[in-house]
């Protein structure tokens, strides 16, 4: 049993490589419990790459290599004895493009719990998860219909419901609103505020208003040209109001005020 700490995820001089190419360097960041942490920065700066390290989704990429460590409640996620499947059950993920399974709404939610042989009342869990994702009222009469028949915004909330059905500790969100219209985006943002009561949320976003509206902490990433390619790094990490109102770094100031990127 892991001791619950105020810092959920902690990285120390994390370097991420694809083959010989250093994609992100020197990431040292502490993600606080029950808060929303936003990763912002220009395209190609490694925000998503770092995010995907936190639930070992990068393992799917063959050339992926990592130096340094990622601590989850004090335990090294990349220790050889760690099972990535167990990691992903505690640290869930919502993707950029809504990706419901081509199954019924009910089965989309029940998929994860069935994986772990969930013994409780499945109907109840499905309802609770859909309510948690603010989708229940819209779909309660059509749980048997395909999840792919929903609108984009509903699909994304279905994916969030699917993630929270696993009762995770942390939810990673990789630009969850970039494929959604403004109204759906607002619904998801409202949802984030409810979710942070129970979960630790890390969200990658291109939308600076979204970061400043929704998050408690913000990490600003930038990218620099090296002889071998473009390497991302964290410029500044602080409370969101500090990043947006009185950043210490010139580059952060320029980015959040829209002068570059």
């Amino acid at each position: 049993m892991l001791a619950k700490t105020d810092t959920v995820i902690h990285t120390n001089d994390l370097n991420i490589y694809y083959g010989d190419f250093l994609a992100v360097r020197d990431v040292s960041i502490a993600i606080p419990n029950n808060a929303i942490t936003a990763f912002i920065g220009p395209s190609g700066c490694g925000k998503s790459t770092v995010l995907r390290c936190f639930n070992r989704l990068n393992d799917l990429i063959k050339s992926f290599r990592l130096r340094g460590n990622v601590q989850y409640h004090g335990q090294n996620l990349y220790a050889p004895e760690v099972d990535p499947v167990e990691v992903r059950r505690r640290i869930g993920m919502v993707f950029q493009k809504p990706n419901p399974f081509p199954k019924s709404i009910y089965d989309n939610i029940a998929f994860g719990p069935r994986l772990v042989g969930y013994k409780g009342n499945m109907d109840e869990l499905v309802e609770r998860s859909l309510r948690g994702a603010a989708l229940w009222d819209e779909v309660k009469d059509k749980l048997k219909e395909s999840g792919t028949a929903l609108s984009g915004g509903q699909q994304q909330r279905l994916c969030i419901a699917r993630t929270i059905a696993m009762q995770p500790d942390v939810i990673l969100m990789d630009e969850p609103c970039s494929a959604l219209d403004p109204i759906s985006t607002l619904k998801v943002e409202d949802l984030l505020q409810e979710l942070k009561e129970k979960y630790t949320i890390i969200i990658v976003t291109h939308n600076m208003q979204q970061a400043s509206r929704s998050s408690d902490y913000t990490a600003f990433f930038n990218v620099e040209q090296t002889p071998k390619g473009r390497t991302g790094y964290i410029v500044e990490y602080d409370r969101t109001e500090v990043i947006f109102q009185s950043p210490k770094e010139q580059a952060t100031q320029a980015y959040v005020s829209g002068r570059f990127g």
Binding site: L57, R88, F95, N99, R162, T163
Partner: peptide, 15 residues
Amino acid sequence: VPSELRQASVGLGAT
């Protein structure tokens, strides 16, 4: 089959 579906499944902790 889109790789997004595989990622969704793996992301939920499926083997």
